[in-house]
């Protein structure tokens, strides 16, 4: 425990300072006097972009010990000038919400409940199923004999918060696998 020097005793401070009514400087606690913003000890601050609507507001993301501690508007952005709407302002909660599910879950046919599943195993199972569906629904030609070289066995529907680089890989991979039923929120 830190020792309070006699000079910091409230009554002494009240007399020492001009805060005669004891409602200002004289009554401040050590904690108050040492107040600093909780972002001050962040170990990284990166420039980011809000993930909600398409205005594309700039965000500053503060992190400490590999955990996001705060997100606020980036004043440098010529689009948003440091401002965020309620959704953008809530995006720290998007990262840290208790509602987030961070582990893989698996539901077997006819099962009433989820069960846990190893991530590596899950990707293996998905790869196997994808190849099976691809083969089973493969089409070499259409009804007129025109080449189609495709599979109708699986489809995808993406949201519109998927990065350009991610969409690029999805389209590239699925097209190479012969899939054509690749869709996005942009259709909706």
């Amino acid at each position: 425990m830190t020792r309070i020097t006699p000079l910091e005793w409230p009554v002494i401070r009240q007399l020492r300072t001009r805060d005669s009514s004891g409602r200002g400087a004289a009554v401040t606690s050590k904690k108050t006097r040492e107040t600093s913003p909780r972002t001050s000890d962040a170990d990284t601050v990166v420039q980011s972009i809000c993930p909600y609507c398409a205005v594309g507001c700039g965000q500053k993301v503060y992190a400490k010990d590999n955990r996001v501690v705060h997100i606020e508007g980036d004043p440098d952005s010529p689009i948003s000038r440091g401002r965020l709407c309620p959704k953008g302002a809530a995006s720290e909660q998007l990262v840290n919400s208790a509602g987030r599910q961070t582990k893989v879950l698996y539901r077997a046919p006819r099962s009433r409940e989820w069960e846990s599943l190893d991530l590596d195993r899950a990707i293996d199972m998905i790869a196997d199923r994808l190849l099976t569906a691809r083969r089973k629904h493969w089409e070499d030609t259409d009804q007129h004999g025109n080449p189609v070289r495709r599979t109708m066995g699986f489809a995808s529907l993406g949201g519109a918060t998927i990065d350009n680089e991610e969409n690029y890989l999805i389209k590239k991979l699925f097209s190479a696998a012969g899939a054509v039923q690749i869709e996005n929120q942009a259709r909706i």
């Binding site: 609507c53 519109a160 969409n167 389209k171 690749i182 259709r187």
Partner: peptide
């Protein structure tokens, strides 16, 4: 066009849409 999602424009430019290539 006031599009509704962070990169819905990107999702059309580099599309995951059945009828388009990048």
């Amino acid at each position: 066009a006031l599009r509704g999602h962070a990169t819905i424009q990107g999702c059309t430019d580099i599309p995951t849409l059945f009828n388009l290539l990048p």
